[in-house]
Nucleic acid binder design. Structure first.
Length: 472
RNA sequence: GGCCCGUUCGUCUAGUGGUUAGGACUCCAGGUUUUCAUCCUGGCAACAGGAGUUCGAUUCUCCUACGGGCUACCA
């Protein structure tokens, strides 16, 4: 066990879109790390980009996290509510000469960049007091840039190891825009400090922001937290999965009938390994097993087939009552009008055959309503003539006479008729299945009939006898 | 252009200075089953390339290639 005690971590999405796979994984690893070490997991909404942030995304992100079961501690912190605080910090940095006002126009700098000059030239870095006053008096807009000192910054990343960055690689980056609003690198530091975050766990795309942020921590005299940068989740083309690049939203997985634990399980395996050959875990098991040292640096390609397999594993392992809960979350009317024992029989019979809740609902439909359609191919193959109808009619009569509706007795009765008519049992089984379920495949016919009950079976057989063999 | 990171079966991954390079998903073949699915058994399939260090490198070092990230008045 590690000696880390009660870490405080945060998941800090910007509400510019729904919670997608990549950010869900980041949230998960933060959560696992925190809970494994008896720490806290906080939520912070990074909504300083007013143009792109939307309330509906905030709600969507929260409900996705709730669905996944990643409960955050306390109340979410909204950056938009802390603008005054950021202004004060910018002023502090200006006052202690860690930052300066820059009056260069956006266009000029943009042009220079296009021409190959990737770094800010430092034009306004050492303006005189008078010069600054002159600019300000004339009402010119300005941004505030951090003044990067000479030297080098390094930090020990929990995943990447020690990262060294020379300061001449770092631009005098902007911490406050010309409209006075702070930028990401500034607010992240201010808030992580305010929230007393001990471990910053985020995507690898932030690794080059880290030294910039450390410089701000230093300029403000704040304690620098630990960092862990997670590998990216990639699309099939090995490009980073992003909102733009077809990253599915978490909501989509919910709608597709995946169990939250199954999604979490799959996500955990992208970039992390449990140190054993086991692959199926509940969230609590993941918490117990999670170690940052088992996270590696390589990006992982998202593979829906493996997710589907994991989902199927969770379906068959999950308790029947929990499956029912999941189904009701999708469709609260499911199973209405049927008694609990009947519903549980169906659940037990089909859950290990299902890849997802939706798949389950689909497979179980004929337990709740008589078939409206009959599979065409199977109809032609298994009930193509009057001879079949003849035998099916006999079978129906025999069933009507059965006193005790029991799988074994039904089977015996069916096989007996087949034998009497010199037919293989399949000649009777297939048309019966078709008549009862409308489809050519499914669980054991005899247990299926037992669950359905005598009345329903007779009713469906009668209906089928009126219809089959199908015309044309 | 610059900085940083990565590279083991198609995919997710384990692994060691000497291994038949292991597992999982997918796929294929059998088995089980009334059918389909599950399940069981078996199979296909990988150390990016080149130097160097070494008795010996997949493992250590360097180079190259390829891939990724960052290089915004986005976060």
């Amino acid at each position: 066990m590690s000696d880390v005690k009660n870490p405080k971590v945060r998941f800090a999405p910007s509400p510019t879109g729904q919670l997608h796979l990549g950010s869900a994984r980041t949230a998960l690893f933060n959560y696992l790390y925190a809970k494994h070490h008896d720490g806290s997991f906080y939520l912070r909404i990074e909504d300083t980009d007013k143009a792109r942030s939307k309330q509906e995304h905030v709600e969507q992100i929260c409900s996705s996290l709730e669905w996944l079961g990643l409960k955050w501690d306390g109340e979410p912190l909204f950056q938009s509510a802390r603008l005054n605080e950021y202004h004060n910090v910018v002023q502090t940095l200006l006052d202690n000469n860690s930052a300066y006002r820059c009056f260069c126009s956006k266009d000029v700098l943009e042009t220079a960049r296009v021409e190959g000059s990737y770094k800010y030239p430092g034009t306004c870095r050492n303006l005189s007091e008078e010069n600054i006053k002159m600019h300000m008096n004339s009402g010119e807009g300005f941004v505030v840039r951090l003044s990067i000192p000479e030297g080098e910054t390094h930090f020990d990343d929990m995943i990447y190891g020690t990262v060294h960055v020379k300061h001449d690689e770092i631009d005098d980056f902007i911490i406050a825009r010309s409209d006075g609003n702070p930028t990401y690198n500034l607010v992240v530091v201010v808030d992580d400090h305010e929230m007393e975050i001990t471990h910053v766990i985020r995507g690898e795309d932030h690794i080059s922001n880290t030294p910039k942020q450390i410089l701000i921590y230093n300029a403000l005299g704040y304690t620098v937290p630990e960092f862990a940068h997670l590998p990216m989740i990639l699309g099939p083309d090995k490009k980073r999965l992003s909102k733009r690049h077809g990253a599915p939203g978490v909501q989509q997985f919910k709608n597709d009938g995946y169990l939250p634990d199954a999604l979490l399980n799959y996500l955990a395996l992208l970039g992390w390994n449990p140190g054993s050959d086991d692959e199926i875990f509940t969230l609590n098991e993941l918490i117990a097993l999670f170690e940052m040292s088992h996270v590696h640096k390589k990006g992982a390609v998202y593979d829906e087939q493996k997710l589907t397999w994991i989902s199927g594993q969770h379906m068959s392992r999950l308790g029947t009552a929990n499956i029912l809960g999941g189904i009701h979350a999708i469709n609260k009317d499911w199973g209405d009008g049927f008694d609990t024992q009947y519903i549980y029989s169906v659940l037990d019979l089909l859950k290990q055959r299902s890849k997802s809740l939706l798949d389950f609902i689909d497979q179980s439909s004929y337990f709740f309503s008589d078939p409206q359609f009959y599979d065409e191919k199977s109809s032609k193959k298994n009930w193509k003539d009057d001879a079949t109808s003849q035998i099916m009619n006999d079978f129906k009569k025999r069933l009507e006479a059965v006193e005790e509706w029991d799988a074994d007795l039904i089977e015996t009765s069916l096989r007996k008729i087949a034998e009497e008519n010199n037919l293989s049992a399949g000649k009777l089984i297939h048309p019966t299945r078709l008549a009862l379920s409308g489809i050519p495949s499914g669980p054991s016919l005899f247990t299926l009939m037992t669950i359905l009950g005598k009345d329903v079976c007779i009713r469906r057989l009668t209906k089928a006898l009126n219809i089959f063999p199908l015309e044309s």
